[in-house]
Design a protein around this nucleic acid. Structure first.
Lengths: 212, 212
DNA sequence: GTCTATACTACGATAGAC
DNA sequence: GTCTATCGTAGTATAGAC
């Protein structure tokens, strides 16, 4: 399938060099076809970029929502169970962000985060939105905090720790004195983040009890 | 000063569109000069990019190391004082990352983090390295943890929360239901991050006592 | 030092052959 | 459907006028 090949190579190119930096010619040549194929199949560079975003949303969404089985939070779930689900989802996110397979996906999304285009809405609406709101609700259940936007802010700091693994990759490697994030390094980081999550949630609960 | 004007406009352009996306013609024209001035003063686009990196390292370094007065950690500092310094430095980092003035600087650095070029070494060596190692040492002092690379990993998760404010800006805005990060939103986020820092450091201390 | 003019390359889009 | 050929545009670099 030419379209499939074009899409996958395009994602890698867009992730590495950005929309402007990537060239349709080199993408097409890497896919073993002519540049005009992109025009034919996707309508042009812009269309290819948007199709890449949809493809990413699909791939990432599939594996992330697996944590819930369904996309819905189980009825009447307890604080402990909610905390467990938070760990599940964040754990999967870490795998996604550090896994070699989805390097391009993560970079593509990070670029869109920094300078959102129409592609961001597709990725956000297709996948992130669900995951984030599930996390917010789980934090509410796990901590009993519904004041202001405490839960939202907490989720931001939780995923921030994960996103940094990719977004500040160069600094992470320097600090860990590695040239790449191998399994052992990832394990250590994941364990620390998990411990941080518990520490943060516990603190939120303690704050709540002080408030009342 | 033509060079100064060129540099500042170049940083904004590079930050917004990346190295490939920015154009020397538009940078020069925005600076009210001819494109060949860039060749004359900086040797070309690449040289301008590296000069921009040096400029950023200088500007950011100046204000960040202010937290310490000197670049050195005071002799015989206690755990509580170390924790206070951690809060100081992270607080300044938040100001830097969210402040409107340094938007371009942050974006420029984030791009280099994702896809490091020669410019990254200049920024990292000139400013970040010192700050990060100071933070690692402060975490060691504040928690009494010198096992493995616990301190390094912790610092990664701490700054990750801050970096996300810029690196995942689009998602942060969606979750906070804002169109921009105003002072009130930043205040809430900064307070949460500060609380998280205490929670994480306390957890590290508790773990240490379990270990012994 | 700064600008104009020009050379050269690479890009994306498109038309047309097959 | 896929490729070749070509067009117009925009990029960087460079030489030379002032």
């Amino acid at each position: 399938m030419v379209q499939q090949r074009l899409l996958e190579i395009a994602i890698a190119e867009f992730a590495a060099k950005g929309l402007e930096g990537a060239s349709t010619r080199s993408i097409a040549s890497a896919a073993g076809t002519a540049m005009s194929s992109i025009t034919y199949h996707f309508g042009g560079k812009e269309g290819l970029y948007l199709a890449a975003a949809d493809y990413i949303a699909l791939q990432m969404g599939d594996s992330l929502t697996l944590a819930l089985g369904d996309d819905r939070i189980p009825e009447g779930i307890g604080a402990e169970a909610a905390r467990g689900l938070i760990h599940d989802i964040i754990g999967r996110l870490i795998e996604k962000m550090t896994g070699p397979k989805s390097t391009s996906y993560s970079l593509f999304i990070m670029r869109e985060q920094m300078e959102p285009t129409a592609a961001f809405e597709r990725i956000y609406g297709g996948m992130m939105e669900k995951m984030l709101h599930v996390l917010v609700e789980l934090v509410r259940i796990a901590t009993g905090r519904s004041d202001g936007n405490t839960a939202e802010v907490t989720v931001i700091t939780l995923i921030g720790q994960v996103v940094a693994l990719r977004g500040s990759r160069a600094t992470v490697l320097k600090l860990m004195q590695r040239t790449q994030l191998d399994v052992s390094a990832t394990t250590v980081l994941a364990a620390r983040i998990a411990a941080n999550i518990d520490a943060i949630l516990d603190r939120l609960i303690a704050e709540r009890q002080e408030l009342s």
